[in-house]
Design a protein around this nucleic acid. Sequence first.
DNA 1: CTGAAAGCGCTTACAG
DNA 2: CTGAAAGCGCTTACAG
Lengths: 330, 330
Amino acid sequence: MKRPTLQVVAARAGVSKSSVSRVINGEATVAPEIRDVVMQAVRELGYVPNGAARNLVTRRTDTLAVVVSDPPQGVVSDDPLFSAVVRAISRELESAGKRLVLMLAESDQSRFRVEQYIAGGHVDGVLLVALHGTDPLPAALARQDLPVVSFNRTSAQGVPYVALDNTGGAELAVRHLLERGRRRIATITGPLELHESRERLAGYRRTLQDTGRRPMVGLGDFTRASGAQAMRELLADDPELDAVFAANDLMAIGALRALHQAGRRVPEDVAVVGFDDIEAASYTTPALTSIRSPMADQATAAVHLLLQLIDGGPADPVIMPNQLVIRESS
Amino acid sequence: MKRPTLQVVAARAGVSKSSVSRVINGEATVAPEIRDVVMQAVRELGYVPNGAARNLVTRRTDTLAVVVSDPPQGVVSDDPLFSAVVRAISRELESAGKRLVLMLAESDQSRFRVEQYIAGGHVDGVLLVALHGTDPLPAALARQDLPVVSFNRTSAQGVPYVALDNTGGAELAVRHLLERGRRRIATITGPLELHESRERLAGYRRTLQDTGRRPMVGLGDFTRASGAQAMRELLADDPELDAVFAANDLMAIGALRALHQAGRRVPEDVAVVGFDDIEAASYTTPALTSIRSPMADQATAAVHLLLQLIDGGPADPVIMPNQLVIRESS
DNA sequence: CTGAAAGCGCTTACAG
DNA sequence: CTGAAAGCGCTTACAG
């Protein structure tokens, strides 16, 4: 059975299509008796406006795209934070009466599809998550003169963002290790294509440098396996190291495992600090000290910024502060 | 600057709108020279068809909704599997040229919004994830005569599903513990509103029953914290228990921690088996034995089933088998 | 405050 | 194979 249209609601209510439309859209200038008879008809017929027809004329879709631009290995979208971020975004959009189209851009082809989709006028704005520094997407989207907000800092000009204070977070971590009396503090980095990885590394370097210590850098890619691998390499390079700052918790968990296998006690022999404070950080043995990133708040802020931008408001970048959470591993 | 329409492409190419439309949609009956001149104009103008206008007439949107019907605590959407599932679905849809609208239905209000959205003709089909046994959504959606596939078995009649063999998985786990010579095997359940929780519990009960052993059931809700809590209670009830089957890995991880704190060695004193085989299972100390659920395959199968249904094909339920992965904890 | 009419940008029979 | 015309289901000036 076909879905009823405005037309048939109007017929049923004995008024014009215009009036039905006005009632549906809650316009003030409608006589109460017309409102009532229309609402009655709407209810009886189970009428719901056709979205496509409405979008076509209003040029609004009340839909925002969340584009996760992530390499195929899934640096970000396999991350436990992914759910938290998507969830927070979804809730925020929901309470604003908007919808969320999720697109993963893992390849050039899918990146192209994203652009096409956006160009097709399907969404009112775009939230970019997990960009590489060299990602072509922000620039491409900015060209479409559609509101865009990035969840990371980007190299593209004029794309507003809501970012973590990654440098500051790394400083917190390293300073904490120094205060604990650690002398040989290594770091395990995320993939260096990502801004946040570079910033966390920079924070580590700068803090060590201020105290005249030598940096020791192991390369990871934000996965547990890479954290374990980098830890083994760091131990081989300097068996005397007494602390490690991993640029995210997953790698810290991998490092804990590698340290355990190498017979090192944590924190007695080697102190470990992670970054993100995912739920799993409380459940490792020993429980992991970490830098808490307010991901949910960041997501909320990003959505707000985007909605504000869509309404023609200003778009000043936002930097979210972090917090050190001390547990057993340091 | 306004986006170009079919109209202006036609003018530029010196042909009718009909012809442009045919070229865009790749119809065979177009003269090569017309095709060329149209493609040229499309390229020069950067033309992309307006989605709303197209949807309005074709009645297809090439968009599918993924509805995560989850209580506010987020039993499922905070789960590490959430990313894996969403990711697999997204990839599969992408390769089929479809889009994904993600909706979380956490309250009656948001459930209503989901229904409205679906009724608005915005999507061609719906994939339901994480249903309670009593969730009203499947029935409500089925009434809209729109293709629906559930990621769980549902109580609603006529909603095809792709489910795990939860009962069989639980049997694998318990049988394994019995083979290891364990005598007092407890279980920690998921929230019993969820079908899968009940099925895993049923598999546990049946297997124990077959060997005449007494069931010991602790109630959890799929979170780590609940696993730890249930483990403490089970230990208080029966300090002699020598094995526990947790209905998911997160709870198993919580249980490991509680056992550690209670001074029990794993697996010497108590063997532990989880369910799902999330990545974290390999990184616990000791590494966790688990039942591997082919979540990605399940997601792929669900998408296939839905696409098939949309094309008017049959919709036979699918049950995915599980596999025991033995590690150090048992 | 209400209604008739135009129009949003496409696709699709229908002639030719 | 191509084009003119109708129509998808809405909203929105414009009269009244």
